[in-house]
């Protein structure tokens, strides 16, 4: 998978997270989705389903245990997409 695909994943995550949060905070790759954006667990799980559909991949929700920042989530999606 190319760098442009990674950028596409990052852009999609930032756009969707911005629609899910009430916070005015600028969303960057280092933004913590739980502590800074207060995204609840169900919203995050629904976002994962949307990402699965967009990139036609399976993302196990237990893989999210160690994911805190937007960059970590983008890395996970990129890794799964690259392996598929």
């Amino acid at each position: 998978m190319t760098e442009s695909n990674y950028d596409e994943i990052m852009q999609l995550l930032c756009d969707r997270l911005s629609g899910l949060t009430n916070s005015d905070a600028q969303i960057t790759p280092e933004t913590n989705m739980i502590s800074q954006l207060s995204i609840d667990s169900i919203k995050l799980l629904n976002l994962i389903m949307e990402i699965e559909d967009t990139f036609d991949v399976s993302i196990p929700i237990n893989a999210l245990t160690d994911i805190h920042t937007v960059r970590e989530l983008a890395d996970l999606v990129h890794k799964i997409k690259s392996a598929s």
Binding site: I48, M49, E52, D53, S58, P60, I61, N62, A63
Partner: peptide, 22 residues
């Protein structure tokens, strides 16, 4: 410890899509 994949509630089109991806 298994991989957990969710499908949309009672949505069989969504469920099949996720089965196919597996």
């Amino acid at each position: 410890g298994a991989d957990i994949i969710r499908f949309k509630h009672n949505d069989m089109v969504d469920m099949e899509k996720r089965l196919r991806r597996l």
